[in-house]
Each structure stands twice: as structure tokens, then as C-alpha cells.
Design a protein around this nucleic acid. Structure first.
Length: 636
RNA sequence: GCCGGGAUAGCUCAGUCGGUAGAGCAACCGAUUUGUAAUCGGUAGGUCGUCGGUUCGAGUCCGACCCCCGGCACCA
């Protein structure tokens, strides 16, 4: 006798097991029509699921937190049905919902074309109109394997074979089509609606393994309503407008070209931005007790063999040769810093010794991985290595985390997540060493009071690490900072200090970076601010624009006064109307425009207009200079 | 590295059936002296990614390669 409890506490008694469809129909016509699935005691089920005993029920409709994932998963199935109707020779494999849509991986000899995509999408809409019912069936394992094998669906058959022996094999019929799937699903394809769109085609490896055959992946997005779909597509366009590659060109920050693939040409304005960041960081590091150093670019292969890099990263290192010695351009700064540490005798009194370096590194990244400034072959890390005693790890971790959060805040990033990554499969150092390193980092993390998510198996080959992920203005996550506890490298490269007891001891090495790489961090800043940098970072801070050439002399004077106050100021004396100048400077995202005409020249004032603002503020020149100079001061 | 797509003036893009390259903006020159998001007129600008092939003739068709873009894989 099931007693059904609804979310509002109301109950309904049934004399016999009741299906979700019946239940929703009993509650109301409207609900019956809108229902997508039900949650029975917290477990998501098909609407057709028979509730056999007392249960707490939630009906999932559009607007429910889990509705989107259901819709997207169904969209993937509708996609698969459409593809197999149009291209029967195609095999289906997997098709999950993703964070903002869905995809389905297909196996076929001929790749899809963009025209295919349009045809598939049209067919998907037809399948929705057909309103095919989705029916769940449980099949014996053997029957399922035989069925899929017999219709040539070898990937599905292989997948079932890989499932545990006792796994329930559920099959969903969708009209005349069927697919192996865990479910749950909507009651019929009509409930999906039409708020979906196919977006792109790409290759993807079977089971995510590059050693396997490559499949054809079709990506799409699906939403509860057409308005949401439109909003999402608009948001994609907006994100594209922030693309750092585009803004980098438009704002004349940098460029990249074939002759130096994976490297960056920093133009004057981009380099100005870089230096503003570097100057700020340098000050914070100095205050934090770091000693800035500069280590070599090229090292003998013997060093990389000793550090373990040669074994693990040889393929990604740039190699050079000289007089029968094999050299490699450094992909990291840490071995160099250990060599510096080893110079002279170190006492426990010298620790912690904090080296910082804006270290330029090269890694031969796979060509397909390169992406603007986000993934390059030549980059500069805000690197640092802290050599300390084991008993100093906790306090160093706390201090570092505080510094990192402060610096992120200075750049406008308030929200930061932390991931704890432990030992990877391929690693250096004994299990005992890893036990110690992980325990030490865990203790330090807890002491620092950080909330963290665990990220198993993702540590560096020489030690566990914390990864710091910040959220940008449009909600995207970027992993930037890192903090790694390393007991391995000091041992491999022979770093020691003399302890209080007069004996030799191994220092612990803490690898740390806050921005990660300048290149990537600048890309993130560009996209975060959409090119509208805060005054202290903006390469062009203020432009004095003349209304008439009668004000040219005064404009030059105003520029000099601004520059004398440390501002990056220039004059726009072009023979253009003020409207054109305002427009050009606005498009160039110059934060402040000081307009000067006859009036201003006569009474030594400026009409200050802010980027994006509609109004202006007339100030005495001295007042404007003081105001802007104050605003342009970097964070403390 | 793998799959797919792309590359034409500084930028954004057009270029039909293979017939010898075009627009807007930017640049430059001139006129205009302008009051808060595009003043008007003129001039110049191209080895159509590179190399090779087919053809009387290639931006266009074919092949190889380079680079870029979207994913996948990778990411110390």
C-alpha cells in the first residue's frame, strides 16, 4: 500500500504500486504534461517507474535542478537516432550530457561535414515532433551482447562485455530505435522540445585513449526554453569578443607568428602590462621574504638525468648540442635553484631560504595543444622554491596561501578553489617518501584552514601539490597557482644543510607559483576584464584629446603634467572631430579621456570622461592629475 | 600528435562555370577647426600560406607541407 509523500508534505495513498505517470496525472493535468521524470526517495527514475512502497516523491519538471541534465541526455539520444536514420552505416558509442550541452560519439569511416550537421539537426527536430515514447527494458546480458553484435554495433557490444557480470542491462526503445543506456529518460521525445542546437564536430578517442580508434564526436547544446538557448548562444558570442587573441591584436598587446611557433612577440603596450604585473609581484615577493635570482637557460643532459626530467619529459624538452655535450633548454627552474642552493654551506639558520625567479622556460608542447597565450612553448613562470626544514613546512604553506589569496584579490579575483593532488602513477621517490610528503602537505593545508577538493593521482612526479583555481568575471575556472611539497628533488640533486646537531640533513623543497605563467595569466586578465583593465594595469591610462588645434599646446602641457605624476598619458591631436576621437579611444579601451578645447585651455582645466561613461567631469588640471595618479596606484 | 575546418590588402570579408583580384574600415595626402562613440574628397596598398602538379590559362581543380581555428589526447 504505497503512501506517497510529496515535497510539500502532502501524502497520497495508493492501494497498489503506482507508476509516476499515473501519480502525476492524479495530481494534475498540467503536471502530467510537464513532468520529465520523478525522484523516488532521492533517486532519479523514469516517469514510468512503478513505486511499490512508501516513498518520498519529487516530480522533475523544467526548472528543477536536474531537469537540464535529463533534457541534454535525451538530446544526445535523439541525436543518435537522427544520425542512424540518416547514416545507417554509423555505429553509436557514448552520448552523455555535459556542463552546457551534450555530445555523442559515433564510429564511421567518413567524418561528418558541417552540412551533415544541419541535416542531423533538422532530423532531430522531426524526431521531437514524432514524440516517440521511450520505453525501458531489462535484457539478459547475453541477449544484449548478441543483439548489438548482430546489428554491427561492436562498440556497444564491447561496452556491455566490459560491465560487471551482475550489472543490470537496461535498453531504451525510442520509437523504432533502441540504445543501451542507464537512463533515466524523458517519457517521450516530444518532451525534449526544440531548444537545442548542434554546435561542432570533432574527433574523440574511443574510451578517451589516444591508442584507440578515433570516433566522430558531435557536440550540441540543449536548454529548457528557446530563450535560454538564445541567451546561451549570445553568451558564446560575448565570450568570443573577449578572446585574448582578438583583444591582443586589437589593443596591440602582442602577436604570434609562424617563425616562432608557440612564442610571443610582446608589443610595447603588452609589455607595459606585463611589467605592471611583474613590478607588483616583485614588490610582494620581496615583502614576503623571497630573494630574487636568475638561473641559466641551458643545462647539461646530466642534470636532467639526475633530476628525473630526462626520463619523464625528454620528448617535451628542446635539445641543443655543443662540443659533444647534449644540452636541454630548461622546462622548469627547480633544478637550477637546487644548484644555487648547493653553493656554499647551508646551515639550519639559513632556512627557510626562499628563491624567486621570473623564470623563462621552454616546453615542446604538442602542436595541437597550442592556443594563443594560454598554451605556449615559451613562457615565464612566477616561480619560486622554498628550501626549509621539515618543521617549517606548515608555516610556509600558510604564509604562501595568504600571499596567493592577497595577490589574486589585487587582480580582482575573489573566488578561489583549492585542489589537493596526490601521488601519480609515474613518480620518483619511494612510497615512504610520498607518505611523508602527502601527510606534511595535508597537515599544512588543514592548518592553513583551506577548503579543498581532492584530485587523486594528479600530483607532480616528485611530490603532491595544491592547485589554486580562480573564477573569472564570466564564471570560468582557471587553474593558476600551485604549491608542491618535494622530498625527492633535494635528494636526487644532493641538497643538504647542517642541522643544529652538526649533522647533514635534507631540506624540504616547496615549489610554488601564483600566476603560473605570465603569458597565460595575462590572457586570463585580458578575458576577465574584456580588455578594460583597471587603471593601474591599463597600458594606456589617459589620453588628452583636443577639440580644436587651438588647444594643442595646452594638451601637450597637460600630457606632461600627467606623465610627471607617473601616468601613462598621451595626446590625441589628430585632425578629427572630438566624436571620432572619443569613439576611437573608447574602442581602444583607454580608461580615461581628458578632453580639452578652448574653454579648458583658457581656464587650465580638463573634461574627464571615463571609458564607457556617458558623462564628464570638469576638473582643474592639477586636480585631474592628482585624482588619476591616486587611482592608478597599484594595490598595496 | 590525432580528427575536422580554414588561410585573399593592416583588420573584417566578397570573388559565379578555371579567363588574370574587389568592398568597407584602417593607412597616406588634401580640405575642414570641429564640444563627448565614425566630417568630406582623393591616393596608395596583393608572390591570393608555401612548394609542386593539371591546364593555353589556377585565388578557383589535384597533391604534399607549414601555420591558424574547434575538439580529442597531452599538460612537470
Amino acid at each position: 500500500m504505497p503512501v506517497i509523500t510529496l515535497p510539500d508534505g502532502a501524502t497520497r495513498d495508493y492501494a497498489a504500486p503506482v507508476a509516476g505517470t499515473r501519480l502525476t496525472a492524479d495530481i494534475g493535468k498540467r503536471l502530467a504534461k510537464d513532468a520529465l521524470a520523478i525522484k523516488v526517495d532521492g533517486v532519479l527514475r523514469d516517469l514510468s517507474y512503478e513505486i511499490g512502497g512508501d516513498a518520498a516523491i519529487e516530480v522533475v519538471t523544467r526548472g528543477h535542478p536536474e531537469a537540464l541534465a535529463l533534457l541534454r541526455h535525451d538530446a544526445a539520444h535523439v541525436l543518435a537516432e537522427a544520425v542512424q536514420e540518416l547514416y545507417p552505416e554509423t555505429q553509436v558509442t557514448f552520448g552523455p550530457a555535459t556542463e552546457d550541452g551534450f555530445y555523442y560519439d559515433f564510429a564511421r569511416a567518413k567524418p561528418f561535414t558541417p552540412e551533415d550537421l544541419a541535416a542531423i539537426e533538422a532530423r532531430m527536430h522531426e524526431i521531437v515532433v514524432r514524440d516517440e515514447p521511450l520505453v525501458r527494458e531489462i535484457w539478459p546480458r547475453g541477449k544484449a551482447i548478441a543483439h548489438f553484435a548482430s546489428i554491427g554495433e561492436t562498440y556497444k557490444a564491447e561496452h556491455i562485455e566490459s560491465l560487471p557480470e551482475d550489472a543490470e542491462i537496461s535498453i531504451y526503445r525510442q520509437g523504432g530505435w533502441l540504445d543501451l543506456c542507464l537512463g533515466p529518460h524523458l517519457p517521450s521525445t516530444g518532451r525534449l522540445g526544440h531548444a537545442f542546437k548542434l554546435l561542432r564536430i570533432s574527433g574523440a578517442y574511443w574510451r578517451g585513449d589516444a591508442g584507440n580508434r578515433q570516433l566522430q564526436r558531435v557536440y550540441g547544446t540543449a536548454w529548457e526554453t528557446r530563450e535560454q538557448l538564445e541567451a546561451y548562444l549570445t553568451q558564446l558570442e560575448e565570450a568570443a569578443k573577449r578572446d585574448h587573441r582578438r583583444l591582443g591584436r586589437e589593443l596591440q598587446l602582442f602577436h604570434q607568428q609562424e617563425e616562432a611557433v608557440g612564442s610571443t612577440f610582446w608589443h610595447p603596450r603588452g609589455w607595459q602590462l606585463w611589467r605592471s604585473i611583474e613590478d607588483y609581484l616583485r614588490r610582494k615577493l620581496k615583502d614576503g621574504g623571497y630573494l630574487e635570482v636568475k638561473s641559466p637557460q641551458l643545462y647539461d643532459r646530466l642534470l636532467w638525468e639526475a633530476s628525473g626530467h630526462w626520463e619523464k619529459f625528454r620528448e617535451q624538452m628542446f635539445i641543443a648540442e655543443s662540443e659533444q655535450r647534449m644540452l636541454a633548454v630548461k622546462p622548469m627552474n627547480c633544478p637550477g635553484h637546487v644548484l644555487m642552493f648547493r653553493q656554499g654551506i647551508k646551515s639550519y639558520r639559513d632556512l627557510p631560504l626562499r628563491f624567486a625567479e621570473f623564470g623563462s622556460c621552454h616546453r615542446n608542447e604538442p602542436s595541437g595543444a597550442l592556443h594563443g597565450l594560454m598554451r605556449v612553448r615559451a613562457f615565464t613562470q612566477d616561480d619560486g622554491h622554498i628550501f626549509c626544514r621539515p618543521d617549517q613546512v606548515v608555516s610556509e604553506t600558510e604564509t604562501f596561501c595568504a600571499l596567493l589569496l592577497e595577490i589574486y584579490r589585487a587582480f580582482g579575483f575573489e573566488e578561489v578553489r583549492v585542489k589537493f593532488s596526490d601521488r601519480p602513477e609515474r613518480r620518483a621517490g619511494s612510497d615512504e617518501t610520498w607518505d611523508r610528503a602527502e601527510a606534511a602537505l595535508m597537515e599544512a593545508t588543514e592548518a592553513a584552514g583551506l577548503e579543498f577538493a581532492s584530485n587523486p593521482g594528479e600530483g607532480a612526479f616528485y611530490g603532491p601539490k595544491l592547485e589554486f583555481v580562480l573564477k573569472d568575471a564570466i564564471g570560468r575556472d582557471w587553474q593558476c597557482g600551485t604549491f608542491q611539497v618535494d622530498f625527492v628533488m633535494p635528494e636526487r640533486l644532493g641538497a643538504v644543510y647542517t642541522g643544529e646537531d652538526g649533522g647533514k640533513h635534507r631540506p624540504v623543497m616547496l615549489h610554488r607559483a601564483i600566476l603560473g605563467s605570465f603569458e597565460r595569466f595575462i590572457a586570463i586578465l585580458i578575458e576577465n576584464f574584456a580588455g578594460r583593465f583597471p587603471l593601474w594595469l591599463a597600458p594606456r591610462q589617459v589620453t588628452v584629446a583636443t577639440v580644436t588645434d587651438a588647444a594643442d599646446g595646452y594638451a601637450e602641457e597637460a600630457v606632461k603634467a600627467l606623465q610627471a605624476a607617473g601616468l601613462r598619458a598621451e595626446a590625441d591631436l589628430r585632425n578629427e572631430k572630438i566624436n571620432a576621437k572619443i569613439r576611437d579611444l573608447s574602442l581602444a579601451k583607454v580608461p580615461a579621456i581628458a578632453v580639452v578645447g578652448r574653454k579648458e585651455a583658457d581656464n587650465r582645466s580638463v573634461a574627464l570622461r571615463r571609458l564607457g561613461g556617458k558623462t564628464q567631469e570638469v576638473l582643474a588640471l592639477e586636480a585631474a592629475v592628482a585624482k588619476l595618479a591616486e587611482e592608478a596606484r597599484p594595490p598595496a
